[in-house]
Design a protein around this nucleic acid. Structure first.
Length: 313
DNA sequence: AAGACGAAAGTGGTTGA
DNA sequence: TCAACAACTTTCGTCTT
């Protein structure tokens, strides 16, 4: 598994192929649109299995997280090469062996943990119908988290949920915290907390999620037509232009946009129904909805469809 | 009777001193 | 570390369809 296989060759934003891999910062940037395609690239091969023998001339990876963002490639202390023994006195040697024993213990513990965690991750992501690529990203994030010892004091499940949430966000196929919470059995608060914690600790930067990303899922859950779906995305885009979206919860905006779009296309859903699939309350939908009506001239359109409906009868 | 509306009080998280 | 603050929720009474 070479590292390159995992990473997109095309910019997901503009489709450009003019990607620039900045090895020092460990990120891939699209030169056409400036999107940071991948950051904090890490080798995710299975090398952690390999440091048992002394013969290996390969890089050891135990314990320390290896990111390309740090000047010394992570904590970077590599224990285990015979060559390192030269010039050590007795004390030095015993220290060497002690450290290596530790390294061994840590590594097997990590391995065990990973096995369990990846099973859990698989379960949750299949429950939520999360794409394979996102699942893999989550696995990477989780692996990093264990290697850094971020799981200590937290349940494995909650870290898995947090990693998944982060992966979904990064791939712009967001799931709500409620959904993660329901499928993993971890409290919503806790999922959010670990999410914030691991993204901060691993320095994974995540764009604020776009309300439009939620539309396809909500829309199909409500059995709305594709026309309504694209209408709602249109509405949300307009809302973003008028800066109605900043600081607001994206799910609320998505819900309100969908609600209005359904109204306009004469596929009315109740606020309750929309609120349920979006995981917000009717009140929030009402507030966003009101703002949308105020700032975007949507009332005309709604009246239009109402009249049209009357005429049909 | 169900849905939509809006006021008021409460919750959890962020921010800035 | 604490208080102010914004967004969102819960609850509840009233209006509309």
């Amino acid at each position: 598994m070479s590292r390159d296989d995992h990473y997109v060759k095309k910019c997901p934003e503009c489709g450009g192929i003019n990607l620039f891999w900045n090895k020092d910062k460990g990120e891939i940037i699209c030169r056409d649109c400036g999107l940071v395609v991948e950051e904090k690239m890490v080798e995710f091969g299975q090398e952690w299995r390999e440091f048992d023998g002394d013969d290996a001339d390969k890089r050891r990876r135990t314990g320390a997280p290896i990111t390309y963002t740090q000047y010394d490639k992570g904590l970077g202390t590599e224990i285990g090469r015979k060559a390192d023994l030269y010039g050590l006195d007795g004390k030095g040697k015993s220290k060497f062996f002690r450290l290596r024993k530790w390294q061994y213990r840590i590594s097997t513990a990590i391995e065990r943990n990973l096995k369990l965690a990846l099973a859990e991750l698989k379960r949750v992501s299949s429950f939520l119908k999360i794409p394979k690529s996102v699942e893999e990203e989550a696995a990477r994030i989780y692996t990093l988290a264990v290697q850094r010892g971020l799981v200590r004091g937290r349940s494995m499940e909650s870290v898995v949920a947090g990693a998944l949430y982060a992966a979904c966000r990064r791939h712009e196929v967001p799931r709500t915290l409620d959904e993660l919470s329901e499928s993993s059995g971890i409290e919503k608060k806790e999922v959010g907390r670990t999410y914030r914690f691991i993204t901060r600790e691993l320095q994974i930067s995540i764009m604020p999620s776009n309300p439009a990303d939620y539309i396809p899922r909500f829309s199909s859950a409500l059995k709305l037509t594709p026309e309504t779906q694209s209408k709602s995305i249109e509405i949300i885009e307009q809302a973003q232009i008028k800066e109605l979206t900043s600081g607001r919860g994206p799910t609320g905006i998505a819900a309100a946009g969908l609600y209005v779009a359904a109204l306009i296309n004469g596929e009315k859903r109740t606020q309750r129904e929309v609120a349920d699939v979006a995981g917000v309350t009717e009140v929030t939908i009402r507030n966003r909805y009101k703002e949308l009506l105020d700032k975007l001239d949507l009332e005309k359109e709604i009246k239009k469809t109402k009249k049209r409906k009357k005429g049909e009868e």
